[in-house]
């Protein structure tokens, strides 16, 4: 069984620093990592391969340096990797990104299963998986937290929902998006990492022409949505000390919460 895993290189948003003066994001020195959910997608793929045989193929769209996450993927057990990289791809929204990825996948052609992380920590949209599935016209299962059985015809998965879960049987080929509950990702294997880093590393880079897309269909030009502006949320802290008896300060605090622009304000 051939399994394609979609991975993304993201800035480590848990370590984000803001410029104390302007409140802007400081991008310099921002560490790049593999998107956390994607680690679980890779782990799931390698586990299935161990049972059924076949190949795990990692695919990423990004700038040339995104090759790092593909190297890491190979260290974790991927057999091949493709980086879709072209200046024309930059500035893409999820429409253009999912189109580009699906064209790359169509070129790889021979796959039974696609697994990706539920969402990326830099955008948190969770849109790429379902959109790729629709471009390719295959079934999808999102929020997967357990894979019960898999063969050439069918996969049975558990999906985490707000108030429980459901068990779903999907006809192959299918695209899964997985959440962290699914498994514990392995560490990259040193030997595999070293061979992945060697010159002959089977990481191919494909540009727009390679996957047969026009530059007006991808990147910023091919996008349907556009960023009009970005701003830093301005949550000024008054550092105000409330004074009075316990009863007074608490009632003062509740009043302030009621007037705040929060979702619980009207419930108090």
């Amino acid at each position: 069984m051939n399994i394609i895993v979609l991975v993304k290189q993201v800035p480590n948003t848990t370590n984000i620093k803001l410029d104390p003066k302007t409140g802007n994001l400081i991008r310099e020195g921002l560490e790049s990592i593999m998107n956390p959910d994607d680690l679980h997608a890779l782990e799931a793929a390698v586990k299935i391969k161990d049972k059924t045989g076949g190949k795990v193929i990692a695919v990423s769209m990004g700038p040339p340096q995104a090759v790092d996450v593909l190297t890491q993927a190979m260290g974790m057990g991927a057999d091949k990797a493709f980086l879709l990289s072209d200046r024309a791809f930059s500035g893409a929204d999820t429409w253009a990104t999912s189109y580009t990825l699906s064209k790359g996948i169509e070129k790889i052609k021979d796959y039974d299963l696609i697994i990706c992380g539920h969402q990326a920590i830099d955008g948190d949209t969770a849109q790429i998986g379902p959109q790729v599935a629709d471009w390719l016209d295959i079934a999808q299962a999102t929020y997967v937290n357990d894979i019960e059985s898999v063969d050439e015809n069918e996969i049975v998965v558990k999906r985490r929902l707000e108030h429980g879960f459901e068990r779903v049987a999907c006809k192959m080929p299918v695209l899964l998006t997985v959440i962290s509950e699914l498994n514990e990702p392995r560490y990259p294997h040193m030997g595999q990492l070293i061979s992945a880093c060697e010159q002959k590393a089977p990481i191919k880079v494909w540009n727009a022409a390679d996957i047969g897309v026009k530059t007006i269909e991808v990147g910023l030009e091919g996008s349907n949505t556009h960023v009009i502006k970005t701003f830093t949320p301005n949550f000024k802290r008054q550092n105000e000390l409330l004074e009075g008896s316990n009863k007074e300060v608490v009632s003062d605090l509740i009043d302030r919460l009621k007037k705040s622009d929060t979702t619980i304000a009207y419930r108090l």
């Binding site: 948003t13 848990t14 994001l25 830099d122 502006k229 830093t232 949320p233």
Partner: peptide, 12 residues
């Protein structure tokens, strides 16, 4: 966006 560090206004 970016884990809530930045807000983005988007149009289609």
């Amino acid at each position: 966006a970016f884990g809530g560090n930045v807000m983005a206004t988007i149009a289609c």
